[in-house]
Design a protein around this nucleic acid. Structure first.
Lengths: 221, 221
DNA sequence: TAAATTAGTCAAAATATTTTTACTTAATTT
DNA sequence: AAATTAAGTAAAAATATTTTGACTAATTTA
């Protein structure tokens, strides 16, 4: 048998890669905080999934709180970035209104972590989002764009109503998000599986119809 | 001066009142779980607010989890009870549709803990609500009543559309709840205070208008 | 290439949180 | 009114969770 008294087991050869490690921690943390919320999230689970040591979280981010903050910033940057690509102002207002609903609906549907993170952040009363000036600034343009869309649609006579842009935006988001945010409780209450893709497809049509009907836009039959 | 060496300080005279203590713990726990969620809730804070000892939670409920379960059941029983008082089926369908939106909107607005608790329960993926057969059973009748309302409204020609009752219900709830559930993040994004009563009054009108317009009911101007 | 820096490991300390044990006494029952 | 039961207290044990200290080695820089 081999003897290696005094000699501790060979330390595994580690490749060093700061960017990769940092990015990996952040990406894993998005999932962990989305899935369990701030209080439910476990530092240990993050390190295991990121195949690194707890010490690294303190090394790269400073602690659990700061990591959470970095996570928030990163997901808001992602959605605002995609919204920016919509480039409203050129096409038919009725079509653009439809695109607004469809984009919002699909983004939430495809990027589940975003809603889960905001749901938790609201549980915390916005404790952390309030600290982020960046998020505030990034969001301004989109609301403005919706205001201009309403303006154009109404001026052209295509929209029967001229709602407050913020109310319209909140409605679009509500119709696109509530069934995802509350799939578990609502699903139990109505006795249906709201996570079923078929259910969600039906929901999408419904959301579009509600918004376009409200605006008074002809929904092509 | 009085001497009482060896004698530990006089234990305060306690009145005993099982019902009151149990009820007090439950009521305080509703607030605590609503405010902080399951993981964020602290047994110690509950005992302090209920002016009792941690031991009592184990005595009356069995533990933190069982207490949370009791809290869930109690708030669902409360809302289903109030809904039952709506007694649909007698008045004008257009008016009843309006009453449905207004009731839902107002209930959420006035009973903040309900939405906060469901928000957290959804964060936990419905782990606990799924265990409660009672909640499932209580909810059935209300969905049925909405189905009948749609049926009547459509048959009488008053509703232009005949939407799926579940979709309609989810929409009503979404329009009534989303701005409350997400006041912190949405408020930051749109740069307005969604908790302001004036804002919420505007929201109420908007929600009613969206739903009635969708149904094709004349909204009296 | 020697020195400095930074990525990374391991284990334990510090903290926070829930749960239980052991006990006291008020209320209820026999 | 003695015996029993249940409400209540205090304190500490058990557990869970985050954070830090002390160290090792890979990479970069002078």
């Amino acid at each position: 048998m081999s003897r290696d008294d005094g000699v501790p087991k060979t330390p595994p050869v580690r490749s060093r890669n700061p960017e990769r490690t940092r990015a990996e921690i952040l990406s894993v943390a998005v999932r962990e905080f989305a899935e369990h919320g701030f209080h439910g999230a476990r530092v240990e689970r993050i390190t295991k999934a990121a195949k690194c040591n707890a010490r690294m979280i303190y090394h790269y981010f400073g602690g659990k709180e700061q990591l959470y903050l970095a996570v928030l910033d990163s997901v808001y940057a992602a959605i605002r970035n995609r919204e920016g690509q919509l480039r409203f102002g050129t096409a038919d207002p009725g079509l653009e209104a439809r695109r607004l609903v469809e984009f919002t609906f699909d983004y939430f549907s495809e990027n589940g972590d975003f809603l889960k993170l905001t749901r938790n952040e609201n549980l915390l009363n916005g404790k952390y989002i309030k600290r982020s000036q960046m998020i505030r600034d990034m969001s301004q343009p989109f609301i403005t764009a919706i205001g201009e869309l309403v303006e154009r649609g109404h001026a052209s006579g295509q929209f029967a109503r001229k709602p407050d842009p913020v109310q319209l935006y909140v409605t679009v988001v509500a119709l696109s998000a509530h069934h995802l945010n509350n799939a578990a409780t609502l699903g139990t209450v109505v006795g249906q599986d709201l996570t079923d893709p078929a259910w969600q497809a039906e929901r999408r049509d419904h959301a579009v119809e509600v918004v376009l009907t409200y605006l008074g836009v002809e929904t092509s039959e």
